[in-house]
């Protein structure tokens, strides 16, 4: 559950070089991803709804966020995380 204590997230964190590119998948894209992986959404890695990036993107619980990361092995790698309302 999003905590009331947290204030606004400054937009500039997106510019930081250690923050990779995040994007919320559309419903169709999300469905296609899950079909391709053949798993149920709860099997995906998770991201807290309180995560600064998730809040900046206005992500809702159940959204899937696509992350394009720089990778030392593959150059670029794509990762997906589902937005959840708790932190594990």
């Amino acid at each position: 559950m999003p905590s009331k204590r947290m204030g606004r997230v400054p937009k500039k964190i997106l510019q930081h070089e250690l923050v990779p590119e995040h994007r919320v998948l559309s419903l169709e894209e999300a469905a296609e991803l899950l079909r391709r992986l053949g798993v149920r959404p709860e099997r995906l890695p998770q991201i807290s709804i309180n995560d600064p990036i998730a809040r900046l993107l206005g992500a809702k619980p159940g959204d899937i966020i696509e992350i394009r990361r720089r990778s030392p092995t593959a150059g670029e790698s794509i990762y997906y995380r589902i937005v959840v309302t708790y932190e594990s």
């Binding site: 798993v39 099997r43 995906l44 890695p45 990778s71 092995t73 593959a74 790698s77």
Partner: peptide
């Protein structure tokens, strides 16, 4: 399918090592 999973099927990586390379068959990575 090249994904890395744990015992209960949770996905850990979407492609093993991000590049899907078997290090044993690689040339120094």
């Amino acid at each position: 399918d090249g994904t890395v999973k744990d015992a209960s099927g949770n996905i850990i990586q979407f492609k093993y090592g991000e590049d899907g390379i078997d290090p044993m068959l690689s040339y120094h990575g």
